[in-house]
Structures are given as C-alpha cells and as structure tokens.
C-alpha cells in the first residue's frame, strides 16, 4: 500500500483505532482446549493475529533430580517462538526476551497452581508461538492457564491476561502490533478473577498517576472478557452440549 509508518492514524476523531476497534474493545479471541494427544493438557489460542499452542505435562518426575523440592512441586515454563512466527525468520534458539517472558509467565501462573499437593514433582508448561502479534505474552498465558486446567492440575483460580496501553494520549484496551510499535505505553496484566489478585504486570512507556490507575482498570476489564472465553473453552471440552 506504500503507507509509511508515521502515516498510521492510531486513533481517529470518532475514537476508532487503526484496526477498526473502539478504545475498550479487545481483538477477536478464540480458545480451544484439549488439542494435543500426547500432552496431559493443552490449549490453542488465536488472539488477534497471535496463534499460540500450549501444552502441559505433569505433575511428573523431575529431571535432573536435584531440582526437585521435597516440600512442593515445581513449575517450569517455556515460551518459545517458531522461526516462521515473525516477519524476519527468527533463530530457533531462545532469545533473552523469550527467557524473560518464560519467567514472568511462570510467576504469573504459580500463585494459581496448587503445587503443595505434589512434592518432588514438576509441572511443565510449554508454549509455542506459531504466529506472533502484539500482546503475545498475555495470549500465551491465557492458553497456558486453560492447558493447566485441561490437565486437571489443581488451581486456586483461573489466570486471565490482557494488556492495556496508551495510544494517541488515550488509554485503550488490548494493544495490537502497530499500537505497540507506535503507541506511548503498553501494560500487560494477568489477573485471578475470583481471588482478585494481579499476578503479572509490566509497563513499557510513560503514564501519569491518573493514567496508570485507568490503565490497570482497563486491563482488568480485558482480563474479565478473556476469562469468559477461557471458561467457554473448558466447558466445551468437558461438558460439550450437555450443559
């Protein structure tokens, strides 16, 4: 089309964003639970242009053995991008970014997973980004939480994640790729909806205290929307049409 990046109108005067959404509207979210045969639990999510597969194994024996904890189970998490998931081919070896995201996702899930029930074991969460778009860590978390529930691993609550951010001086829900590149702030948030606890929050960008508060609340609204989609995915898998 020949449109230069600086020409993108992030928010027009009618409050419509560059991909046609309103300021508090998330992208299309679709989750399917139980998509893999070998994994104990699995989920596939499409969140905007994100296409992500999550698989869970465990609780199972820990290898290497010295990592095992005699009091409780451990959680391991790997967020990994396919070489073809982005514009330029990505080296398949894990980057520093992927390692950091793996860690924050693990720490966002850990408060929910009742690892104390399974001493000396590990729960492995493997997340594969088949196609990446803005907000892939939130989408990855959403799929991982559904995969954990699909595996029957005891959880205190679901974990639902969605980002909010600042674009054209306005707080908007669910930042897409263009808004991430050109916008002013991006804040991914993960939330346990029934326990009312935030288990992941990060921020890239500058916000005033008022904007900060609004941004958190906007993201939490997004988490609640995601939560409904997660519930639906698990209900479809386990209860089918007998509801």
């Amino acid at each position: 089309m020949g449109v230069k990046k600086t020409d993108i109108v992030l928010l027009d005067d009618k409050g419509i964003r560059c991909d046609g959404r309103k300021i508090n509207e998330p992208r299309r979210i679709m989750i399917k639970a139980g998509v893999l045969k070998n994994a104990n639990g699995s989920a596939y999510i499409e969140f905007g242009e994100n296409k992500i597969l999550a698989g869970v194994f465990g609780p199972r024996d820990v290898h290497p053995k010295h990592l095992a904890n005699t009091d409780r189970g451990i959680l391991r998490c790997r967020y990994h991008m396919q070489p073809f998931s982005v514009g330029e081919r990505k080296n398949p070896a894990p980057s520093r970014r992927e390692i950091e995201i793996s860690k924050v996702i693990k720490e966002a899930l850990e408060p929910a997973v009742m690892l104390e029930n399974f001493p000396r074991t590990v729960v492995d969460v493997f997340i594969e980004i088949l196609q990446a778009d803005g907000g892939s860590r939130c989408a990855a978390l959403d799929a991982a939480a559904v995969a954990l529930a699909d595996a029957g691993i005891p959880m205190r609550d679901m974990v639902s994640a969605c980002a909010a951010g600042k674009v054209a001086d306005t707080i908007v829900l669910d930042i897409n790729n263009e808004e991430d590149q050109e916008g002013q702030a991006d804040m991914p948030v993960a939330y346990m909806p029934n326990l009312g606890k935030v288990t992941l929050i990060q921020l890239d960008g500058v916000l005033s205290p008022q904007e900060y508060e609004k941004c958190v609340n906007t993201a939490l609204e997004g988490c609640k929307i995601v939560y409904e989609v997660q519930k639906k995915a698990l209900q479809e898998k386990f209860f089918g049409d007998s509801q």
């Binding site: 242009e49 296409k51 073809f84 998931s85 982005v86 081919r89 088949l130 196609q131």
Partner: peptide
C-alpha cells in the same frame, strides 16, 4: 496457509502425528 505471516505454511496430520511447517 495456516500461518499467514509466513510466505508458505502447512499443518499436516498423519494419523496422530502432527507437524506445523512455515516457509520464510
């Protein structure tokens, strides 16, 4: 065409073996 961002792609299921392939 399962990965639109890749120039070519396919998901193949052979029995219960499944592969996702992307061409850059």
């Amino acid at each position: 065409g399962v990965i639109p961002k890749a120039e070519g792609s396919a998901r193949v299921r052979l029995g219960d073996t499944e592969v996702v392939c992307g061409v850059k």
